[in-house]
């Protein structure tokens, strides 16, 4: 009864390890493809557009178009609601900041030497080492920059993980050893869900659901939730603050499980100046 998340650089066999761990533990396997497919079904955004949002790198989340900011919110929402289930092995870096405060999520990072990953790609895809090197390095940079821009995290920060496994030369026995380590560690009682950790994941999922509900009004809002009480922090020009707050409150009160909403509207100084008000 736990959740395992596994992140890895490309061609480190992270996905294979995640799938094998799910199979051996009889857990459900999930990855970004599954999440994007669910987002597409629920929010009516094509999977190709969502996939582009995961590839494009803005200098910060605020530099994304409003549509892309909404896509990220939708992805976060589906991801966090997926985490309400237990017995999952999730492969990927999506949503990593949201699970940091959930004690029953066992966060694993798989690392492998760059040269071995390049060899792995060249062998798997039947291409030259030079071509493989370019792709692997590009993908590494892309993933790192995306996480920094969108989530403000450094994927190489060890504090994000409970366990970092260097799988050496990515041989079969390295993969098997990594798998054994993950399976035996997740059985520790400290990774079991409890009332507190289940409440944490529910709160995080609710906050994301609120952001998704209000994404068309303001994708930059900040939301905190606790047991059905929702706190929304937003900005508006003084003249429109009351209307904006009311509109948000009415929309959020319709979400299942919401009992009380408080909206805090700060004066949007930039817009006030821009509008001459």
């Amino acid at each position: 009864m736990s959740i395992i998340t596994i992140t890895a650089g490309s061609y480190s066999n992270g996905k294979q390890i995640a799938k094998s761990a799910a199979k051996r533990l009889k857990y459900e396997y999930a990855d970004s493809e599954i999440i994007l497919s669910l987002v597409s079904k629920e929010f009516g955004v094509s999977e190709s557009k969502l996939a582009r949002t995961l590839k494009d790198i803005p200098s910060s989340i605020g530099m994304f178009s409003q549509a892309k900011q909404q896509h990220i919110i939708y992805i976060d929402t589906v991801f966090t609601e997926y985490m309400l289930k237990n017995n999952i092995v999730y492969y990927g870096a999506i949503g990593l900041p949201f699970i940091q405060k959930i004690s029953h999520v066992f966060k694993v990072q798989i690392i492998a030497a760059l040269e071995d990953r390049i060899k792995n790609k060249a062998k798997l895809d039947g291409e030259s080492q030079e071509k493989a090197r370019k792709t692997v390095v590009k993908e590494d940079n892309q993933q790192k920059k995306w996480a920094a821009a969108v989530y403000d995290i450094d994927l190489t920060d060890p504090n994000l993980y409970d366990l970092i496994i260097n799988i050496g030369h990515i041989q079969d026995d390295d993969v098997e050893n990594a798998l054994q380590t993950i399976i035996s560690t997740v059985e520790h009682k400290k990774f079991q869900p409890m009332t507190y950790s289940l409440r944490c994941v529910k709160n995080v999922a609710m906050s994301c659901r609120v952001r998704a509900t209000l994404a068309d009004i303001d994708p930059k809002i900040q939301v905190k939730s606790d047991k059905g009480t929702v706190y929304i922090y937003t900005k508006a020009i003084k003249k429109k603050a009351q209307d904006k707050g009311l509109e948000m409150k009415q929309k959020v009160m319709r979400i299942e499980g919401v009992k009380h909403v408080e909206v805090y509207v700060d004066n949007d100084l930039f817009s006030t100046v821009a509008h001459g008000q």
Partner: peptide, 20 residues
């Protein structure tokens, strides 16, 4: 004052559950 570290320590030491 619940934290991830506290929750894990408590469970590791045999707590049945933890409520915030």
């Amino acid at each position: 004052y619940a934290t991830v570290a506290m929750a894990r320590e408590a469970m590791d030491k045999g707590a049945f559950d933890m409520i915030a």
